[in-house]
Design a protein around this nucleic acid. Structure first.
Lengths: 117, 117
DNA sequence: GTTATTAGTTAACAAAAGGTTACCGGTTAC
DNA sequence: GTAACCGGTAACCTTTTGTTAACTAATAAC
């Protein structure tokens, strides 16, 4: 271990890492929600506001997806003492790390659409 | 358009591109198959050989996934005139373009596992 | 003729993901 | 009191995804 302390992951570990990434970022809504929060990062993003702006999502799915994003430390949930009570969701510093990943997915997807058209 | 001929994709186009990427590369088996083919790129990779080496995959899924990869120009399918007939699958030049994408997924996934442990 | 091999296909089923509707508790405005 | 707004939850249904087991056609070895 002269050049680095990092172990090379095994093939199995790499496959597990891909599964982890796709589990946390995959599905129909997670990245849409993340992008929505990121595009309005200076504003208050309440549950209802997100639901209005992420087109087509139901309360059930939004609730579930936000909870999973929160567990994965990508967003924070803050109950505000307004009346009626509102809940603010915000991207975390760590949550910003998903955007380089999504960029590679965007680039590959755009290129692929050209390729197979 | 002074600095580039490329149009900036709209938000909708970016979301569509992410969907495309996840559709082509997502699911339980596609990236496993691609990695298996890439790790044995100098060898003949027949249907049965792939099935033996991609642990747990059924003939039905392997058949379906290979067909989809072929449609997306990521692998080629070649019927060999051996007896009994065998079919060789190989990654295309274009197919290699998925590996930079998978690397970012691997890196993010490995980092994320550290983060939430 | 029987068995084994390759490369699949088919049908039935189970599990996971996502959608729909109705509803709850707390609060405020009318 | 009634209706509306917020942030959900629960039950149920549909669609998508993946699994299992049985089967085919062509060839070859015994």
């Amino acid at each position: 271990m002269e050049r680095s302390d990092k172990q090379q992951p095994t093939c199995e570990q790499e496959l597990a890492a891909i599964r982890d990434s796709l589990e946390v970022l995959g599905g129909k809504w997670k990245l849409r929600i993340m992008r929505q929060l990121n595009n309005h990062i200076d504003e208050k993003n309440t549950f209802k506001k997100i639901q209005r702006e992420v087109e087509g999502i139901s309360a059930k799915m939004l609730s579930k997806e936000l909870h999973e994003l929160e567990i994965n430390l990508l967003v924070t949930r803050t109950v505000m003492s307004t009346r009626p009570v509102t809940v603010n969701y915000a991207i975390t510093e760590y949550g910003l790390s998903v955007f380089p990943v999504t960029e590679t997915l965007v680039d590959w997807g755009l290129n692929h659409r050209q390729k197979i058209k």
